[in-house]
Design a protein around this nucleic acid. Structure first.
Lengths: 340, 340
DNA sequence: CTGAAAGCGCTAACAC
DNA sequence: GTGTTAGCGCTTTCAG
């Protein structure tokens, strides 16, 4: 029913192989032959069948991106940049949501669906160090996004959590703030984002000779707006005094800011605030939110590149690489000193 | 290199056809044979090659979802529900972003990539009535999401824009508000979301015998938070008095609320506010935002079903169908009457 | 109920 | 430079 290479070959009076050569830009073809084939292609409206090509070549031109949840602005934006980076390389992206559920995160890696893709960008949240062995069984090229919870056999592209949080905190300190609260800690966590960012916060305090005060550290279950709001309410109720706030992501920062504004605190005058992630929304709030740009574009671009390198060298044993994206302190109104 | 049906057949001592029958749950197989094949499958760890199957059957088990932009919370949430609905049917979803760019919207429909999918869910923003003919050339099963700008040959699943906006306005009127402002209008637009929702607003006013006042209608370029904020600033500067606000989407409502709060207006006491879309965020703001739930889940579920019906009946001429999802007024704090 | 064989449309040796 | 041929792994007539 659809037009095949045979049809083109017949019309052009050449063999199917020649058609294939033309379609694939094989270099050594007589220009005259090439033209004849091309006009036959145009005349028939021939389009190569990508599935057949995939069967033959073992490539599909599709990669998958496994993330917890698109409803989370950070992951939606990550997906956005990954799709742009993939698009630039001629790849399509299948997105799969794990819901941050461990079983699903594992299931997605093992399922049959991964056959349909050349490689996987994998952002796991619920998997822990103990699950690292799971990655060994995956033969599909894989690049890990997010925390380095694993020391597995895969490439890993991530952000500088500790350094970013340290810079955020140092920024507030440079503003003259000394009582700096935190929202988003997970007690006892060391290796996840919360643990790494808390470490950065502590480092910055230490650098400035400011004592760490446990009372100023607000714990949060989920890193959502509501969590930030709730943690801030507790902080305010506790009577603790503070003039700065580092939120471990932007959503929590926004939730906390709301609560502070309701309580009559002025931002940044009374409390200077900085978040993390640089989600779009931070540009539109009142006041606009200072934040750490974790380098999402770079993460996406490098991850896709790593993946393509592995896809392109199937047999090759490439030493697992790690890439840390450059972060950037983005100063907006929430941490800009009042004019006077 | 990978295990094929031949390997299984050899081990089980049957023909490749029998293996195929077992794998595809073909009914008439002797249980004994089936068991033998199944244990061979288990022993070898055989997994059917989906690409090869796709080549043969013409199906890939993948659909694509074309949307303007994942950064927009509405589309991120739409993508989320579409992926869940597709997942429930065993389908994977490739997401493609058009950036609301007309050329790209058209290009995505014509490109080679669509070969890799069985069907397309298409949410176009920049395409107009004049572009309807483009859909005629698309042979891939297609379901339109969003405004009915086209009267093309395809199924169409959308929300009840006019009715939803009317219900939103009526809700504020029922609260006793009579000076109801609008944010999100597009002057002169009739057929897009802005035009349809404005029509609903006017209908509700007319129903209540309230005169339409052009001064209360705020225009906005893009339906983002910043647009809502800006429109509200203009409205306040104009000196117009109002006690209610209908925003044509939630993002704009949030932007406008911020500006009102800065200006010292209390919500809902001074101004009752309602948005549109029921994005997640509306549950976490202060106050929480009343809104219209446009029935995203239903839209996704029906759209996937329509698409599957077309995919499943390749030759069949199915009369283009239209489905309007049920909407729902979601009352939250921003439009809840004060206790006294 | 099961086997043999013919492709789906393409790519890649290997000839000529 | 170009043609021939053999599959990629699977489904699907058609026999038996």
């Amino acid at each position: 029913m659809s037009i095949t290479m045979h049809d083109v070959a017949r019309l052009a009076g050449v063999s199917i192989k020649t058609v294939s050569n033309v379609v694939n830009d094989y270099p050594h073809i007589r220009p005259e032959t090439r033209d004849r084939v091309n006009s036959a292609i145009d005349e028939l409206g021939y389009r190569p069948n990508l599935i057949a090509r995939g069967l033959r070549s073992g490539r599909t031109g599709v990669i998958s991106l496994i993330i917890p949840d698109l409803r989370n602005a950070y992951f939606a934006e990550l997906a956005d940049v990954v799709m742009r980076a993939a698009d630039a390389q001629g790849l399509s992206v299948i997105i799969e949501q794990s819901g941050a559920d461990r079983d699903r995160e594992i299931g997605l890696l093992g399922g049959e669906r991964k056959q349909k893709v050349d490689g996987i960008l994998y952002s796991a949240l619920a998997l822990g160090e103990d699950d690292a062995h799971i990655l060994n069984d995956v033969t599909t090229p894989l690049v890990l996004l997010g925390e380095r919870i694993f020391h597995g056999p895969t490439d890993h592209v991530t952000m500088q959590n500790t350094e970013g949080a340290r810079a955020a905190t140092a920024h507030l300190i440079a503003l003259g703030r000394t009582r700096i609260a935190v929202v988003g800690a997970h007690r006892g966590e060391v290796i996840g984002s919360a643990g790494l960012r808390l470490a950065g916060y502590r480092e910055a305090l230490a650098d400035a000779g400011i004592a760490y005060d446990d009372e100023l550290v607000g714990e949060v279950g989920g890193w959502y707006r509501s969590g930030g709001a709730q943690a801030m309410r507790l902080l305010l109720d506790s009577g603790a005094k503070f003039d700065g706030l580092v939120a471990f992501n932007d959503s929590m920062a926004l939730g906390a800011m709301r609560v502070m504004q309701e309580a009559g605190l002025r931002i940044p005058d009374d409390v200077a605030v900085i978040g993390y992630d640089d989600i779009d929304e931070t540009r539109y709030t009142l006041p606009t939110l200072s934040t750490i740009d974790p380098g999402k574009e770079e993460i996406a671009e490098v991850a896709v590149r790593f993946l393509l390198e592995r896809i392109g060298n199937p047999g090759a044993v490439i030493e697992p690489r790690e890439h840390l994206a450059a972060y950037r302190v983005v100063v907006r109104e929430s941490s800009t000193l009042p004019q006077n």
